[in-house]
Amino acid sequence: MVEMRRAHTRDAYGRALVELGRRNPNVVVLDADLSTSTKTAMFGKEFPERFFNVGITEQNMMSIAAGLATCGKTVFVSTFAVFATGRAFNQVRQSIAYTNLNVKIVATHGGISVGEDGASHHSIEDIALMRVLPNMTVVVPADAIETEQVIFAVAEKPGPVYVRLCRPPTPLIYEEGYKFRGQPLKYELGKAVLLEEGSDVTILATGILVYEALEAAALLRKKGISAEVVNVHTIKPLDEELVEKSARKTGAVVTAEDHSIIGGLGGAVAEFLCETYPVPMARVGVRDVFCDSGPWEELLAYYGLTASGIADAAQKVISSRGVVR
């Protein structure tokens, strides 16, 4: 196996913000005493006038962001995912989503890959919470390279967006300049990326599980199973066209995410397919439990959010379909 390249999605965010700040004087950034972790401090250092660290007041921060947005600002607001979506849920709902204001909530430390800090800091429900809000777009980049694309894309998109990043340095699936296996791609919000074509099963993955999905496809290939791998970076709006097309093609779907199996990518796909083209389906994710503290990669393995977890789910879902082609 070639050496794995890794990078922090939040570093990519920090760099992209600085670049955005240079391009657009209307970009302002808020943080709630986590700026050195979320990397908004990089923006704060270059643009102190446009950076507001409001202390540990996440609820207040969300409504301030809304007020700034009413005055024509493109507002980026950052804290950890569990606080952005859980602690300040009603503020996001009332002040940002209901008003359809131009606020980009970029939360770091999503999922259980937060690791040792434990369940108080694991964010296993943030995608579900944001996805249920009208007007809200929900994006989970697969790696640091895609993160850069996402940040520039959401800055151009009017209205509220939730972007979920993570804590650890995670494997890169793309190459510099947003290429996949040498092929240049064009990033588009709402358009999932078909990474590998296959015919026996569709693996729809998001965030850091996209890498695991690609590994799972390699494992399955050794067993003679052809898996289609799709990076669903935008969970809302879901790329229904691609999801349905792939489900029709393979007749079996596995979703994979660093999130609860309830309400996230798995929930979104299940809701959609059961109304359009029901196929046997399995959801890989946190199975409705609060997880333990631990090193992040061990945690993912312990809770089955891995290539082998995905491959097992794929085989199960294929057998429940009854036909292995």
Binding site: F52, Q59, N60, M61, M62, S63, I64, A65, A66, G67, L68, A69, T70, C71, Q91, S95
Partner: peptide
């Protein structure tokens, strides 16, 4: 809080 955003 929203008013603070406007004032800022």
């Amino acid at each position: 809080s929203a008013a603070i955003g406007m004032a800022l």
